[in-house]
Amino acid sequence: MSMEQCLHEYKQGLGTFTQQMPHVGRAFNAFTEACFAEGELSKKEKQLIALAISVAKQDEYCTIYHTKGCIDEGATEKEIFEACAVASALAGGATMSQSVTLVQQCVDEFTRMH
């Protein structure tokens, strides 16, 4: 499955969840939009933080989503992998394995699309 298909699957699932639980779905979306809005930290910095947390937690869908978010906000491959390296320093080998496989696949696919 391509990374784009994974994103579509996630968004479709979130839409279904929001239909079933509209108050929760809308509140979650509003909360995350507020968290990722430009503030003291740039949108790019916030995406890099989210990516680092995603790989440290081994959350594949969030890793895919936030790798694309990093690219969409103008992060370079070096910035993306530096964020992953910091996460790996704190969370160990499992994080590194996600960084050198899933994140690399995302970067390869999503940068071709830009």
Rank of each mutant, 00 (worst) to 15 (best):
L7V: 01
G25I: 00
P22G: 00
C35E: 06
D108W: 05
E77I: 10
C106K: 05
E109D: 14
L51A: 03
S54D: 02
G25D: 00
F28S: 05
S97W: 12
E79Q: 13
C6I: 10
L41M: 15
V107H: 10
A83Y: 06
L48V: 02
M96Y: 12
E60W: 02
E109V: 01
A27I: 03
T101G: 10
A91E: 04
K11H: 10
G93N: 08
F36P: 04
Q98A: 14
A30I: 02
C6Y: 03
L48H: 01
M113D: 13
G93W: 01
L14P: 06
F81M: 15
Q105G: 06
A30M: 03
V55K: 07
M21W: 08
C70M: 01
K44W: 00
A37K: 14
F110Y: 02
F31S: 08
I53M: 15
K57Y: 11
F17K: 01
L102D: 06
E73D: 14
M113E: 15
G13P: 13
A34M: 10
T111Y: 12
F110S: 00
A87I: 09
G74E: 05
L90A: 11
A56R: 08
D59L: 14
Q19I: 07
A94N: 12
A91D: 08
T18M: 03
Q12K: 15
H23V: 05
E79V: 07
L14K: 11
Q47F: 02
L102V: 12
Q104T: 11
K43E: 09
K46N: 07
K68N: 06
Q12F: 11
I71G: 00
C35Q: 09
G13W: 11
E77Q: 15
Q105T: 04
R26K: 14
H8A: 13
C62K: 13
S88H: 04
S97C: 11
E82W: 06
H66D: 12
K78F: 11
I80F: 14
V24I: 03
H23S: 05
E33G: 06
H66A: 09
Y10F: 15
F17T: 04
V107A: 08
L102R: 05
C35P: 03
Q12R: 13
T101L: 00
Q47E: 13
Q104C: 12
Q19M: 09
V103H: 08
K57H: 12
I71K: 03
H114G: 13
Y10N: 09
E109M: 00
T101I: 00
Q58R: 15
A91P: 05
S99Q: 05
I53Q: 14
A50C: 01
R26M: 07
